[in-house]
Design a protein around this nucleic acid. Structure first.
Length: 102
DNA sequence: ATGCACCCACGTCACAGCCG
DNA sequence: CGGCTGTGACGTGGGTGCAT
């Protein structure tokens, strides 16, 4: 289904583990202070934290992917110019080397 | 003005792979 | 092995251009 292995795009560059994005505040809540009461609340809190981190991860992932695609597009442009030049050069050489039929 | 098709950015879920 | 992270897939909402 999703995420076929062995075909990881090159834009996937492991960044050094950064802290939470700006404006994101880690919720310090009583349940996390080694008192296992309110397990449901802890689960909710964990889930929200996970969603928040995943939201940011998805944004960053898309940003990197866009950058990667841009990079590929500009590379295509460069190669197209290069290819055109080589074709022109080849035509010129053909003209020079081919015997005149007249 | 409105309905429609298309695009884009987003949030979420599911999964793969990595790391302690 | 369990938790964490990155990413593909999917659904959704807002913006835009176009035909009617």
């Amino acid at each position: 289904m999703a995420a076929t292995t062995g075909d990881m795009p090159t834009y996937q560059i492991r960044a050094p583990t950064t802290a939470l994005p700006q404006g994101v505040v880690m919720a310090a809540w009583p349940g996390s202070l080694h008192s296992p009461q309110q397990p449901a609340e802890e689960a909710t809190c964990k889930r929200e934290l996970r969603l928040m981190k995943n939201r940011e991860a998805a944004k960053e992932c898309r940003r990197r992917k866009k950058e990667y695609v841009k990079c590929l597009e500009s590379r295509v442009a460069v190669l197209e110019v290069q290819n055109k030049k080589l074709i022109e050069e080849l035509e010129t050489l053909k003209d020079i080397c081919s015997p005149k039929t007249d």
